[in-house]
Write a protein that binds this DNA or RNA. Structure first.
Lengths: 332, 332
DNA sequence: CATGAAATTGGTAGCGCTGCCAAAAAAATC
DNA sequence: GATTTTTTTGGCAGCGCTACCAATTTCATG
């Protein structure tokens, strides 16, 4: 088997080598249309011999519709997005689609620029996080004619398709759970809510339910920057310094909550007797801590899977609510 | 159900609308070649008016060399790879390159299939993890003529370029550190080493140094499946059940080590007096635990950045060793 | 003004493939 | 064996853009 270095073999060369026409090679390779077994063998032998690799750029240009799926995600540091990508890429690979991605850093303007760059690749679909986009992004996506999937949120109007769960409801249920357990002096530790609008929706649902039960949020500590274990720890420390008599704290997610948990471990604050901790996401690590973290488990991988499934099946516009699960754990 | 694709605006239509030739529009849009300010304004106005989005598929086919960079990575669950992607995607975006990815699940055969699929997009470069590839993968990559970057390992011969650090040296230094601290009864808890060959190299370097100091590995517990906090916890439990008199345990990475740490917290095993714990990766969470984790911090994001930089600058073949940093922490 | 140099511009041949159509070959039917 | 039907095949026009080259305009300069 010879491979020519750097000289790209074209379909025409394969056709010559196999002694057949170009379209025949194309049909064999795509297993589309009809051809005899003998022809197929001859073509495949030539492909093998020449080390031919089809050029999908050319193929996509010639045919209608690409097999590229574009992901425009806020971050790769927040485990949520790798999880979504993981779910989606498995489905996409099975269906011979190719995933392309860009990271917006939670910046709507950057999202617009990156979405535009993505559309230049004429993807079959664009997958985004949530419903909050600039006017320009919306207009561009609409005009593109490609499928759009907004992921990880269902609290709003979908441009085309949406897959996820209600962040607002997650916030409400978290509050209801804490109230049922008898906590009344409840605080919040979160990260930048303007950027992470889904965290903002959870917080707003949380406060709504607290308010409805005459137990308004006692105090809050919002840290600038991304969510992290360290920020969670720091946030709880500051919150307790200001408002020591809290009996429960809701965190913007499990990373932050783990930081809070570690703070309590380090300071000898007994959980949940002295202070209850509640998170969001249902990370694996939260189940392996000495006391399993009380949290809400979200279908992150499934969100990616379903989103990809909708795209590969070219499903009609729809919103899929995958729900979430409250994990009682031992910290609340 | 049928979905109409909107009629996409082409460069030719923009040219007509602006009253100029196609090549002029192309030059203006790419800011390449010369054109007058007046022409540029006319073209940009037409682009704006028609909502033209260039078709990069066509552009790539017509020109030589694409601006796609293909990542073929083992996993998205192991934070290492999102971190690498994060570093790389920032650099690539700045340089108007587009990242494409596939996930191999640590399966070399799947890596070969996915690499082949990637090459069909004629990427500027293919970025892989480590040096262990099938013969077919190597042959194909060599023949492709595109740049190749092997990441996260420098213990071997690079196909073209490599960026990372020595896993073997990391293992050796970890062992040396534990020996310096006086630990002699040392165990190991790891995950599937056949698949994660870099973890295998660390382990082998670790054992080598132990052996050289007459303190051979006392016992080991290898868990099937991927690394996880839960597996680390389980692994340490099993290891200690079998060999209770260990004074230190080396884990295949920080996830596993955290599991071990939590096991000790839950069982009241005092760290590091009764048992020392040493990890690998330098995750943020390991710095926020009540006792900071003793571990080796690896330049994951930088690996991605440098790898991307090499590609966008079309650097000559080379191996870049970014090194690593031993963090003493408080668990060993 | 003339003349050559420099800056702009447009025309057009591909890039490598797919989709359509007609031609050829093979199989089925009378 | 002639005819019809079915299966296989090849030719070729694009897909939308870029690269190259030649044509045109503008600018300097004597």
């Amino acid at each position: 088997m010879e491979f020519k270095h750097q000289a790209t073999v074209t379909l025409a060369e394969v056709a010559d080598a196999a002694g057949v026409g170009e379209s025949t090679v194309s049909r064999v390779l795509r297993n589309h249309g009809s051809f005899s077994g003998k022809t197929r063998d001859r073509v495949m032998a030539a492909v093998e011999r020449l080390g031919y690799v089809p050029n999908r750029i050319a193929g996509t240009l010639a045919s209608t519709g690409s097999r590229l799926v574009a992901f425009v995600i806020p971050s790769l540091s927040n485990i949520v997005f790798p999880d979504v990508l993981r779910g989606a890429s498995a489905i996409l690979e099975e269906n011979r689609y190719q995933a392309v991605f860009s990271v917006t850093d939670y910046d709507p303007e950057k999202e617009e620029a990156l979405a535009a760059a993505m559309l230049a690749w004429r993807p079959a679909a664009v997958m985004l996080a949530g419903y909050e986009h600039t006017e320009g992004t919306v207009k561009m996506l609409r005009a593109s004619g490609c499928r759009i999937v907004e992921m990880l949120d269902v609290d709003g109007d979908a441009l085309d398709m949406a897959v996820g769960f209600s962040n607002r409801a997650a916030g409400r249920e978290s509050a209801a759970f804490l109230l049922r357990r008898g906590y009344r002096r409840i605080g919040y530790v979160g990260h930048d809510l303007n950027r992470d609008t889904r965290a903002g929706k959870r917080f707003s649902g949380f406060c709504e339910t607290l308010g409805a039960h005459d137990a308004p949020l006692a105090d809050r500590e919002i840290l600038a920057g991304a969510s992290s274990v360290e920020n969670g720890r720091l946030g709880l420390e500051r919150l307790l310094a200001r408002t020591p008599d809290l009996d429960a704290v809701y965190f913007s997610n499990d990373d932050m909550a783990l930081g809070g948990y570690f703070h309590c471990l380090a300071r000898g604050i007994s959980i949940p007797a002295q202070l209850a901790i509640f998170g969001y996401n249902g990370l694996d690590i939260g189940r392996a801590t000495p006391q399993p973290l009380s949290t809400i488990r979200t279908p992150r991988v499934a969100t990616g899977q379903v989103a990809a499934q909708l795209v590969v099946t070219n499903a009609p516009p729809q919103v899929v609510d995958l729900g979430f699960e409250l994990i009682e754990g031992a910290t609340a």
